[in-house]
Design a protein around this nucleic acid. Sequence first.
DNA 1: ACCGGCATGTAACGGGTTACATGATTTT
DNA 2: AAAATCATGTAACCCGTTACATGCCGGT
Lengths: 179, 179
Amino acid sequence: MDVKTLCLATLSLGDATGYDIKKQFEEGPFSHFYQASFGSIYPALGTLLEKGLVACREEEQVGRPDKKIYSLTDAGMGAFKKALQKKPSADKIRSESLVMFFFAHYMDDEDLRDVYDNYLNCFRQKLEFIESLEPESLPDGRLFVRGLGTASCRAMITYMEENRDQLFGGKVTEQTDCQ
Amino acid sequence: MDVKTLCLATLSLGDATGYDIKKQFEEGPFSHFYQASFGSIYPALGTLLEKGLVACREEEQVGRPDKKIYSLTDAGMGAFKKALQKKPSADKIRSESLVMFFFAHYMDDEDLRDVYDNYLNCFRQKLEFIESLEPESLPDGRLFVRGLGTASCRAMITYMEENRDQLFGGKVTEQTDCQ
DNA sequence: ACCGGCATGTAACGGGTTACATGATTTT
DNA sequence: AAAATCATGTAACCCGTTACATGCCGGT
């Protein structure tokens, strides 16, 4: 699933500019399982426009480039639904933090503690964010994804909190409360 | 963290050929959080050899190319430890299945059920595999990673089983037991 | 005075995947 | 007879990130 398809997906939730789409990738409900940068989004929107899968209306602005508001065409919606029919590929995960935990014995205690604190914090923030999405307003699929997100974040947080000592190999390490 | 570093990581667990390393990426304990193909591994090993970070001894074989068994040099171990000191980047996740659940309302029930069954199965298999690694023989870090893996797999499986109906929007759908 | 947010875009670069080329041996 | 496993490697390609270019406005 490439950025083009993800743009269609985002636009199915409402009209948006390239800038908006980028923001949705880093702050919106997709942020957990997908990300993309300007360098891929703008060209993608251009291609989609050529193919007639999105429409574009320009809104003049003073002092900054005209806003190009994209919206999904019927053809675009069709293309998106078609993309959803393909067998999904397996999840692709790359976690440098897990690699570091895996090789914890080669690391300084201080570095390891930083990685641990940071990683735990990530999940706490992610959880907080996901929970901030009001469940009442979500359609079934999004509710399900929300539930999966909270469930797995909670599991990670709980395990990390309960097994902190295991990672630091029984050595007595001071808590890093501040920071 | 690029393939070169991951090759060093793999070799720190024992000598291996390019072919072995590939297998470890798809079957070994890394498979959950990293993957790589021949097209990246062989060139990576070549570069590492040039830089003196790995050594290579050849073993003649009949009927197939000579086996090139790589091992980590002291310099290689040093480079790997250095790589572990860098601040890890955030996890990168791409899950087409989650995108599909998110947009479940645009999908056929049959396709959706396939995606659901498949995804659930993935986690069951992953869990089974992780649990097959004997905890006694693992150093602390690997034990911790193993624990995180089981915890998050269990959470996903449980949530999916308990909320199956939610995804299918209350519609009565027959179980797909066989297949 | 400077930084962050808004807003678009391009070009260079990096990195990895896919597919190809080769070929014996074992399993189905 | 076909497919999978073992074993290496290359080249074309895809896709995406990073960095750059431009420029105003509002807040600190």
